[in-house]
């Protein structure tokens, strides 16, 4: 699994970590308790997410046929990916597992991206209701990365530019097996 953290570890190889590398890791490690608390708070909401997302979608978009129970459950099932990306502070996980995949899926199914994006916005609302401001601040950039990726003209564009995780995105791995 390739992350910015594993990159630092592998690049150090047979030398000591540099002070800059240790500072970067220390800064990230110090945020782990908050990231883990956020994951726990989201986990507590997990069992009801599908149901609540569907209820909210039916309320906000009563005419949209797309929003079924399996669809709402699928939307809720994206959460562990976002949580994992948040724990790793690695936005590339969102881009590769969700954004790239959904873009391909939308093209193949000729589905309106905005309807999917709206459902993810509802999921975000449902989750954020249960989080503190600090917890929201660590997961929000990953929701934004997803929403900007699939709905580039949506309102998250501005937010994403200011809340993007600090590190540079790692180059994509190429599977060669």
């Amino acid at each position: 699994m390739k992350t910015w953290l594993s990159d630092i570890i592998h690049q150090a190889n047979e030398r000591y970590f540099t002070p800059e590398e240790m500072a970067r890791m220390q800064e990230y490690f110090s945020t782990m308790p908050l990231r883990l608390q956020t994951a726990s708070a989201i986990e507590r909401a997990d069992p009801v997410l599908g149901r609540e997302v569907l209820a909210e979608l039916k309320k906000q978009y009563p005419d949209r046929q797309l929003y079924s129970r399996p669809f709402a459950n699928d939307i809720a099932a994206l959460v562990p990916v976002l949580v994992h990306a948040m724990l790793a502070d690695e936005v590339q996980f969102v881009r590769r597992r969700l954004v790239d995949h959904f873009q391909a899926m939308m093209t193949n199914l000729e589905m309106p991206m905005t309807e999917v994006a709206d459902a993810i916005r509802v999921l975000r609302e449902v989750i954020f209701r249960r989080l503190s401001a600090a917890q929201t601040s660590v997961i929000e950039p990953f929701f934004n990365a997803l929403l900007v990726g699939i709905d580039p003209n949506g309102p998250e564009k501005l937010a994403a530019s200011s809340s993007e995780p600090a590190h540079e995105d790692s180059p994509p791995e190429v599977a060669t097996v």
Partner: peptide
């Protein structure tokens, strides 16, 4: 019905 699970082959593991 329309299904939207995360990418599988792009799993980091």
């Amino acid at each position: 019905s329309f299904r939207l699970r995360p990418g599988f082959y792009s799993r980091p593991d």
